[in-house]
Write a protein that binds this DNA or RNA. Structure first.
Lengths: 230, 230
DNA sequence: ACGCCTTGTTACCCTTTTGTGACAAAGCCA
DNA sequence: TGGCTTTGTCACAAAAGGGTAACAAGGCGT
């Protein structure tokens, strides 16, 4: 297993040190910076696999810096996890279209942090994950980016593909719209919950052609479930 | 397995020594020089299979020397891997059109270095790999630099040939534009991602003459895939 | 030096995708 | 059944993503 470079940008010494330790312990290779300028210098040298970024920073704020990074093609693909202090409204973090991939609010448990980092790395394709997922006669291949029922190819849009991917890796369990948004769209985008319904509808429409619209089930008052059995 | 001569050009004694050891251990035959002049003398004597070159050198900088080498037909085909120290901006390395085949930033792990060396040797055809690759009625011959469908020769440009080579050795898998750039153009060139589209277009145009433009498939939002099946 | 080929880049266009509001339909409970 | 809540569905507009042609620069051979 390869080791990932993680850039920590955090002004408080105590937290920065703690993060370094936690990440090292978890087998990552962290590099730390105290502000955006310093972080930029590190970036100039080598692109990390992920950036752990404090939302509030002296000088250029973390949010502002993240926004800039996401505009540059060279940096765009580096996933960013924001660290938000308790009291900084979660909504704001979601609302501002920063393009962060996730956020974690302080205080957080090391375990949670590591889990989120792994999740983001996996989602951005840096950790391989399972290439083929089979469920009944459904087959989803992330390498080939193909989805099929039996030997028929399904034509799905990128979002539909991700949604199916999530469902097939988490079958037989109900997920709320919020959970689906977090898992499929990422925790820091803000879109209406009802939009999920529309995507569910679109998925069902495709599955309908194969008489399999029953795979996606509504659980009234809770959300949706993907399951082979009704 | 044959053993490759690798010329190390590095001014710091400690690093030079370390490189010698690491390469020997890995079964290569390294020769070392401390600066460009010394390296040039070694070159005059015998052409190595690959040059491992420090980007910053006293006297003529590594970058400058590499650029000169790439202008001389005799040396052009020797692959060069640049060693960049932390703090030397990656952008510059990519941006300046040095013509290096790859770069590795210090500090690097021996494992990573060896892997990159192997990759570059393979890409430049020094490690034989497969001379002939067949995929359906497609045939690509790396030795003769020929590509054919059935018994018809295809006329492709060098870049198109490399792209086809990569595709035929990695079929049925989606690659992002970035991945294609890294794999086909090499990690140390910086070109626009959209340029890929243009090359794909050119490839398709050629394949079109044989009704095979469907071999190169667009996967919206992700990249391209080469596959015999739709 | 000249012309041809190769290659990277850009601009423009078209298609697909996607989020959203509006309204109908369905479900639930008293 | 009636009224309220939760979903389903549709149409639309904006945005994203790609396809393509045209252009310019560089390289190469003659």
């Amino acid at each position: 297993m390869s080791s990932f470079n993680i850039l920590i940008v955090e002004d408080e010494d105590a937290i920065r040190g703690m993060l370094m330790m936690v990440l090292e312990q978890a087998g990552f290779m962290p590099i730390a910076a105290a502000d955006a300028e310093e972080a930029q210098k590190i970036l100039d040298d080598k692109l990390p696999d992920l950036i752990l970024l404090d939302w509030m920073l002296p000088g250029i704020s973390g949010a502002e810096w993240a926004r800039r990074l996401k505009k540059e093609p060279i940096y765009r693909d580096i996933p960013i996890i924001l660290l938000t202090a308790r009291g900084e409204e979660e909504d704001k973090v979601r609302g501002l279209e920063i393009g962060a991939d996730d956020y974690v609010s302080k205080p957080f448990s090391p375990k949670e942090l590591i889990a989120r980092i792994r999740a983001v790395l996996r989602r951005s394709g840096k950790i391989p994950g399972q290439a083929q997922i089979t469920l009944g006669d459904l087959m989803l291949d992330t390498e080939q980016h193909r989805l099929s029922i039996g030997d028929k190819q399904l034509e799905v849009s990128p979002t539909e593909f991700r949604l199916m991917h999530f469902f097939m890796t988490h079958p037989d369990k109900v997920y709320s719209r919020t959970q689906l948004l977090d898992q499929v769209w990422g925790r820091s985008v803000y879109i209406e919950e009802r939009t999920i319904d529309v995507h569910i509808r679109r998925l069902r429409k495709i599955l309908e052609e194969y008489g399999r619209e029953d795979l996606v089930q509504t659980v009234r008052g809770f959300g949706y479930r993907f399951s082979l059995v009704d």
